[in-house]
């Protein structure tokens, strides 16, 4: 069984982002970039399925500028077998990415696509569901547990819903999106980082895949949210309780 794992290059989650003074977006120049944390969980899950003998090959995919190759090398260092970059300078929105992935699925014929539930930059939480729709595959979003039955060609997924958990069973092929609890991703070891440099990384373009990636949504401006006012320090617990009761009126 082949697993496709889409990964996105995003501003590292520890970076304090800065809105550009002209309001055109968030400054990503000279900022540390990393793999989207939810995608790390997706790579980890796919690699574990391969280590268990459930999957035979893990293919990492990214779409965007040439620098996304670094993100793909990280996926290879974590255990993916090969990688594909859909190279474009166009700003990619979720529907366009889903169409690119659908085109790659048609070429690669994976039985499973595992991807992050959302990226921590645009926070859209759309691409996996859109991909499943375009392929007319079942979907299991926000997964916290994945069990593949290769004999029956089904997957049983526990997913995080508001206030609890839900377990779905569906036939393969399917799309799974990962939530935080699914696993704890490993760190890439130095030997594996070195080995990853020799693993195959192919590049294609949206044109070659026959996909129109023209953005549908225009960003008019990006601004900082209203700043919180600096608060006060209280001397002791009594003053804190008094403030909460009489000033903030929240208790």
């Amino acid at each position: 069984m082949k697993i496709l794992v889409p990964v996105k290059r995003v501003v590292d989650y520890n970076v304090k982002i800065r809105v550009k003074p002209d309001g055109s977006g968030v400054d990503t120049a000279n900022v540390k970039m990393s793999m989207n944390p939810f995608d790390e969980i997706a790579v980890e899950e796919a690699v574990r399925l391969k280590e268990k003998g459930v999957a035979s090959e893990v293919v990492a995919v990214s779409a965007g500028v040439a620098a996304c190759q670094e993100t793909l090398r990280t996926a290879l260092a974590l255990g993916a077998d090969r990688a594909i970059l859909v190279n474009t300078e166009v700003e990619l929105q979720p529907l366009a990415v889903a169409k690119l992935l659908a085109a790659l699925v048609a070429k690669e014929s994976p039985q499973l696509v595992i991807m992050g539930k959302q990226a921590i930059d645009d926070d859209a939480n759309q691409t996996g569901q859109m991909l499943a729709a375009l392929l007319n595959w079942p979907q299991a979003t926000f997964a916290s547990k994945v069990e593949v039955d290769t004999g029956a060609q089904t997957v049983t997924v526990t997913r995080e819903i508001d206030g609890g958990l839900e377990t779905l069973k569906m036939a393969l092929p399917a799309v799974i999106t990962t939530d935080l609890r699914l696993n704890e991703p490993r760190f890439a070891s130095l030997p594996n980082i070195m080995k990853a440099k020799k693993k195959p990384l192919d590049t294609v373009t949206p044109e070659a895949l026959g996909v129109d990636v023209t953005p549908r949504i225009r960003t008019l401006k990006v601004e900082e949210p209203p700043k919180r006012q600096g608060g006060v320090k209280v001397a002791d617990v009594d003053e804190l309780i008094a403030k909460l009761k009489n000033e903030a009126k929240v208790i």
Binding site: L95, N125, Q126, Q129, Q139, T141, D162, R216, I217
Partner: peptide, 20 residues
């Protein structure tokens, strides 16, 4: 969780953009 799960599936089926 319900809306986030369903909405993008609908949007892609209708080939329209979603604003989350």
């Amino acid at each position: 969780a319900f809306g986030k799960n369903v909405a993008p599936r609908v949007a892609a089926k209708l080939d329209c953009a979603q604003i989350s």
